[in-house]
């Protein structure tokens, strides 16, 4: 564990808490992509199957359980409790275009050809693009509530912080590298660059998040 990893994980944790806070206080899931949240549940469930086979640490175990449980709870809030506030007609990204290629990539690139390892690989690839339905929705509506942009910024920061973490680990753990996670992580971070640009130049200057028409 290094400082980048810790800050990255805390940022991930914060992003979920911000999202829950947004839904509970506004009593609405307006502006949130159900598809992205459903993809995250898929990511966490397929990746964290190793809670049954490998014990890493209490920290690791608790975080895994939290990520699965909290994201499932968000799906419940969106589908049941605040269902009328969710508008499927603007959440139109075709997730099959993500699931198919990620499954194929996982079959091609993995560390061992076992169910657990291929699913892990699948989850890494899927996580890298899971935000696309959300960003697509943002692009479509052209604006977002400030709290939603804080959620996205925290999520993007989590991914960005994993990059210095890998660099640090490469030098401190005798050249150890995880090419699947690193490649997918770089792609994932790159997807946030446009968003970050608007977030830093507008939202943090106190303006509303609005995309140029």
């Amino acid at each position: 564990m290094n400082i980048f990893r810790l800050l990255g994980d805390l940022s991930h944790l914060a992003s979920i808490l911000i999202l829950l806070h947004k839904i509970q206080t506004t009593r609405s899931c307006r502006g949130i992509s159900f598809k992205t949240q459903a993809l995250y549940v898929t990511v966490f469930v397929t990746r964290y199957l190793d809670i049954f086979t490998d014990w890493v640490s209490l920290y690791n175990f608790t975080m895994k359980i939290f990520f699965i449980a909290s994201t499932c709870y968000i799906l419940y809030l969106m589908k049941m409790k605040y269902r009328p506030t969710h508008d499927p007609s603007i959440d139109t990204f075709r997730v099959e275009y993500l699931l198919g290629p990620c499954a194929l990539l996982a079959l091609l690139f993995h560390y061992r050809f076992t169910v657990l390892e291929v699913l892990w690989s699948f989850s890494i690839f899927l996580e890298s693009v899971a935000i696309l339905p959300q960003l697509f929705m943002l692009q479509r509506t052209g604006e977002a509530e400030t709290i939603t942009t804080h959620y996205l910024a925290a999520l993007g920061a989590y991914r960005a912080l994993y990059i210095p973490n890998w660099i640090y680990r490469y030098f401190t753990e005798s050249g150890q590298i995880d090419p699947i996670a690193v490649t997918a992580g770089l792609v994932q971070t790159a997807l946030y660059l446009d968003f970050f640009y608007v977030y830093f130049t507008k939202v943090l200057q106190g303006q509303k998040f609005e995309l140029p028409a």
Binding site: S57, Y111, Y162, D178, P179, I180, A181
Partner: peptide
């Protein structure tokens, strides 16, 4: 030196 997944990462 090697390539493997880091099991402790989330």
């Amino acid at each position: 030196t090697g390539t493997e997944r880091s099991k402790d990462e989330l």
